[in-house]
Nucleic acid binder design. Structure first.
Length: 285
DNA sequence: ACTATTTCCTGGATGC
DNA sequence: TGCATCCAGGAAATAG
């Protein structure tokens, strides 16, 4: 499956901030204004963070006023049919975990294995949640607040403060959703490469310059990935879900042993807190 | 208050 | 060919 410089993650990436952004935009285009007529929730308790009855009660007879991203969460603003979009009665929160997908399809489409939720829409279509590995989560809440700061809007000084005094490796700090919301394994590695910082460095040991570079590199790589993902939204076909939206050329992630694009040194792979981490031993210090 | 480790879960890849 | 084993990783739970 790996094709050229792309890893298999290019075909079915674990959704991080840019992927979730792309998915939320695609969903917003397709289901905004639609009415949820009924809800089916499968498989016992697993993917449900709220009780099934609560989810059903919150969704049924609500109109989807908006779909957007917050961290790695997809937020559906729900309003009662006759009400305006201004004051959502509730929010449906979807976390895709590693393998979660939201499909908009015709009711005739065969139910995929591991389908955990089906929303029947007034337009005649269905919105389905499929998640083989079941790390994804569904919840309803009045008003969602992300645990950490948005990497795309945090100020440089707030960004620096996030890491102040932290002894944990910078890689782990980047992955900590209570600090920053939305950064996953791929973009953490890619941002550290751009900042020329090794993933094992203690977060607190980064200089002001390195923190500036890390902030800039993180924003750049996230925006680039959103841009590339966004360009393929127009290719969405109802039955296909969110396929093929990811086209970023990784510089380190999944490139163990391959030459650094900057200096040719073989990229190293190490494990930090159980997560694979990739870096250039020459460019990153 | 932090930090590190373990656990959940399944499909795909690998090895014998 | 088939079966066992390993590995991927987001985030919550647990332990220190």
């Amino acid at each position: 499956m790996p094709v050229g410089e792309f890893t298999c993650a290019a075909i079915l990436p674990v959704p991080e901030l840019p992927e979730v952004e792309t998915i939320a935009r695609g969903l917003a285009k397709r289901v905004t204004g639609d009415l949820i007529e009924s809800v089916w929730l499968g498989s016992k308790p697993e993917p449900l963070k709220s009780p099934a009855a609560d989810i059903e009660a919150a969704l049924v007879s609500k109109k989807i006023a908006d779909v957007r991203r917050s961290g790695k969460h997809i937020v559906f603003d729900l309003v009662r049919n006759e009400e305006s979009a201004q004051n959502p009665a509730a929010q449906w929160i979807v976390h895709l975990g590693m393998t979660g997908r939201l499909l908009v399809c015709s009711p005739d489409t065969g139910l995929e294995k591991h389908t955990h939720a089906v929303l029947r829409l007034a337009s005649g279509r269905e919105l389905r949640f499929v998640d083989p590995r079941r790390f994804g989560r569904l919840a309803v809440i009045e008003k969602f607040t992300p645990p950490g700061a948005e990497p795309l809007s945090i100020s440089p000084s707030d960004f620096a403060n996030v890491f102040r005094g932290r002894k944990t490796p910078i890689k782990s700090a980047l992955l900590n959703q209570k600090l920053l919301s939305g950064v996953g394994n791929i973009y953490a590695d890619e941002a550290l490469y751009r900042a020329k910082v090794r993933p094992r460095r203690r977060a607190a040991s980064l200089s002001a310059d390195e923190l500036r570079l890390l902030h800039k590199g993180l924003k750049q790589v996230l925006q680039e990935a959103i841009r590339l993902g966004g360009s393929s939204i127009s290719d969405y076909v109802d039955s296909e879900g969110q396929e093929g939206f990811f086209q970023l050329k990784h510089r380190v992630y999944g490139r163990e042993g391959k030459p650094c694009r900057r200096c040719g040194t073989p990229i190293k792979r190490i494990v930090i807190a159980g997560r694979s981490s990739h870096y250039c031993p020459k460019c990153q210090r």
